[in-house]
Design a protein around this nucleic acid. Structure first.
Length: 161
DNA sequence: GCCAACGTTGGC
DNA sequence: GCCAACGTTGGC
């Protein structure tokens, strides 16, 4: 199968739940716990190995893009849906027909200069970014290549080749 | 802590 | 299949 062109994404995470530092310590993680169908469809169907990710801290002080990551494995079933003890347990999911999926990502770099929401909003070139739109709750979002590069520039991180 | 925006559920 | 009620997200 032909390798799809690289795409760019933004993943939201609450730093109290799974912050970028924790992610860096782990070295890799399956992006689990997403329980929204639109985000699920992106994870399962659109996000592929080699794609790049802006790591966004939501519900945070400050709310900011704090790092970048690379997709290291295409999606497979999110195990937490099968675990009755997990907060992400889904009693309607079965192993024969899993409902929820997650890709694996690895950290590339923490932003030397995290780009907080005010900075994002203050940059005219980012005005169309989904995360800045009113009511944009989607926890996994597509990002334009130009927006990705701009955020890297603002965060003083080298755009990965 | 408030509340607007959005997604899901379930009665009908 | 509609839509009101409810739950969640997440900025502020």
């Amino acid at each position: 199968m032909a390798k799809p062109p690289r795409r760019y994404w933004l993943f939201k995470s609450e730093p109290d739940v799974y912050g970028f530092a924790h992610f860096q310590k782990d070295g890799r993680t399956q992006w689990t716990g997403v329980r929204n169908y639109q985000a699920r469809n992106l994870l399962r169907d659109e996000i592929h190995t080699g794609d790049l990710v802006l790591y966004y801290h939501s519900n945070a002080e400050p709310t900011a893009i704090v790092g970048i990551a690379r997709v290291s494995k295409d999606a497979w079933a999110d195990e937490t849906q099968f675990d009755p003890k997990s907060p992400y347990y889904d009693p309607k999911a079965t192993r024969e027909a899993p409902r929820w999926f997650g890709v694996e990502i690895v950290p590339i770099a923490a932003m030397p200069r995290p780009v907080d929401r005010d900075a994002l909003k203050g940059e005219p070139a980012l005005a169309d970014m989904m995360v800045l739109q009113r009511g944009a709750r989607l926890s996994v979002q597509p990002v334009d290549a130009a927006h990705f590069r701009k955020v890297c520039e603002m965060g003083m991180v080298t755009v990965p080749s």
